[in-house]
């Protein structure tokens, strides 16, 4: 499981660790960054629709509605506006709570199902690596239900290893994604910004009581702030990845490190050994 600040290499670690593990194990990789799913930019899997993620939205029966305005008044998300002759529903603001429907004194509000996004799954069945991604429809704002659904799939199906690639930040979707995981990999870089965001991420995983390890990406370009932090707090440093033009070049062309070349296999093999050590 990986996390960290935007642009530090979360996706790179998640994708390549999955590819490496899939050489000898059954692995499922989930891209939970449903606003900007990027993993398949590097995997190039053919995807097939797996399921829709829906929420309910109000459906107004204008012939019964008295335009009393109660629903608009109650809606905490301002998703309704009541005019003298019609009710306007702003679907993108609706959280699907159903309050308007249960509160309507005329029972004029029914609910309909609305597609929030879609979950796709990789096609290649003979492969050891199964891949899922969730995609929020453009213009939709609620990422959390899709992440919730993806995680349900992850834990219901019987996978040997599950890798979750998380969205950046520390807001609601990240908490939803992190909860119930066994181990968190926090990816950072040795700059003030990298350290700052790492500290926030550590705060978060500690609150959720999830054991974690740190990967220091581009470990030789900044200073020794991450090393100092790790030493001082006795955190687990899983891996240092020095800057390398080849990594950057492969990345910029949308190519994975594992599979394109064998050069980086030892790196991920070491990473896996370290993770196993720490988890035990």
């Amino acid at each position: 499981m990986a996390s960290g600040k935007g642009g530090t290499g979360k996706t790179t670690i998640a994708v390549n660790l999955a590819l490496y593990l899939a050489k000898s194990h059954k692995v499922a990789l989930f891209d939970l960054d449903v606003e900007e799913p990027n993993d398949n930019h590097f995997l190039h899997f053919e995807l097939t629709n797996f399921k829709d993620v829906n929420i309910s939205r109000p459906l107004i029966n204008e012939s019964i509605c008295t335009h009393c305005g109660l629903c608009a008044e109650l809606c905490e998300f301002n998703a309704l506006a009541v005019l003298s002759t019609q009710v306007m529903v702003f679907e993108e603001l609706c959280h699907g709570c159903g309050l308007c429907s249960i509160a309507c004194p005329e029972k004029a509000i029914k609910e309909k199902s609305h597609r929030l996004g879609i979950i796709q799954k990789s096609k290649n069945q003979n492969n050891n690596l199964l891949f899922y991604e969730g995609k929020l429809r453009v213009g939709e704002a609620l990422a959390t239900p899709i992440i919730h659904e993806l995680k349900k799939i992850a834990f219901e199906e019987n996978h040997e290893y599950i890798i979750l690639d998380l969205p950046p930040g520390s807001a609601c979707p990240v908490i939803e994604a992190l909860s119930d995981t066994n181990f968190a990999i926090l990816v950072t870089e040795p700059t003030p910004a990298g350290e700052h965001d790492l500290l926030i991420a550590i705060d978060l995983v500690k609150q959720l009581e999830i054991p974690f390890g740190i990967i220091n990406n581009r470990s030789d370009v900044g200073d020794d702030c991450i090393d100092r932090l790790v030493k001082k707090e006795d955190y687990e440093l899983l891996l240092n990845i020095p800057h390398e033009n080849e990594i950057l070049w492969l990345y910029s062309n949308g190519l994975p490190l594992i599979g394109t070349t064998t050069k980086f296999d030892p790196m991920f093999s070491n990473l896996w050994i370290r993770i196993e050590e720490v988890v035990k």
Partner: peptide
């Protein structure tokens, strides 16, 4: 609190 969306349905009912 972590799961609460703040919709107010519980308060209303």
């Amino acid at each position: 609190p972590m799961s609460c969306e703040g919709c107010g349905a519980c308060a209303w009912i």
